[in-house]
Simulated assay, not measured.
Amino acid sequence: MKYFRKEIVLFVLIGFLSVSATCQEKTSSTTESDSKTVKKTKKKKKKYKLSKINLKHWSVTTPGLNAKGGAMNVEPPEILNYATDERLMPYMYNDSTDGSIVFYAFPNTTTANTKYSRSELREQMVPGDNNTNWTFEQGGVMKGKLAIEDVTKDAEGKYHRVIIMQIHGRLSNEQKELIGAKDNNAPPMLKIYWDNGKIRVKTKILKNKGASDDEILHEEAWDDDDGYNFPTEVGFRKFALEVRVEKGKMVIVLNNSEYAVYDSSDIIRWNVFENYFKAGNYFQSRDEGSFAKVKYYELEVVH
């Protein structure tokens, strides 16, 4: 009888120890699982990226309206606060997932000498001043890394075109008075398009190669060339563009590997004009409901 009782006591004791060990194992397993969950949660925490583009030497024109009902323009230093400026936030804003600045444009307002709207930067060599510009003889380089984020299609199913970079000509005040122009606008020597997934370059050529220096100051003295398409299709991928200018020569480089070189007499004669760089989203459509979004990851100008 005593032996039987000892067996019962021993059996109960073993059962208790087994249950206790199981509970400890489950507790340890649960704790380890919770720890892994916490670690996974920490790994998934998003990192917000801010743009590194220096806007100190840029003004911006947007589809927004100014007090006079025209296209809104914001210059330095106000443009430096674009991320919190309610006037600019709908048209120029940060994408914190990749550190880009997004330029959004749609048919709304137009600027002088155009029927299209834009969300586009204009170079200012002296912040807040449009009267200090450069000639081809002085030269300059503009580099950018960008992508088309979104763009609508026309009735035929073709994507709307967007001008993403420009070199715009400008008359000096003396030239303006000489030819009796109403403003300082001169033709754009260079327009770089995103055109249905390809990069297309358009430049100006003289209608009369023998025109005088005074005659070529008039916009009607110039015509558009036939244009050039880079072979590579960039589509909606990120790509690099570079524009190099010197006296008598202009070079456009795509992805550091494809080149378009212009060194004709038209480029040489262009030295009569002042110039400034432009970059962003100059949207080429008036279709109802159309729009485009252009992302700039990098943008730099050197003279």
Rank of each mutant, 00 (worst) to 15 (best):
R122C: 01
M125V: 02
V126L: 13
G128Y: 14
D129E: 10
T132G: 03
N133K: 10
W134K: 04
F136Q: 15
F136P: 06
K143G: 12
K143C: 09
L146H: 05
A147D: 08
I148C: 13
E149C: 04
D150I: 08
D150M: 06
V151E: 04
T152W: 04
D154E: 06
G157I: 02
K158V: 03
K158S: 04
K158G: 01
H160G: 02
V162M: 05
I164W: 10
M165C: 09
I167Y: 01
H168G: 07
R170I: 06
L171M: 09
E174P: 13
Q175R: 06
E177W: 00
L178M: 15
I179R: 02
I179Q: 05
I179D: 05
K182R: 03
A186M: 08
P187T: 03
M189K: 11
I192S: 00
N196C: 04
K198E: 04
K198M: 07
V201N: 12
K204N: 13
L206M: 15
G210E: 03
S212A: 08
E220I: 02
D223L: 03
G227M: 10
G227K: 01
G227L: 07
N229G: 02
R237V: 06
R237F: 11
K238D: 03
K238M: 08
L241A: 02
V243Q: 03
V245F: 00
K247D: 06
N255Q: 05
A260L: 07
A260M: 04
Y262A: 07
Y262N: 09
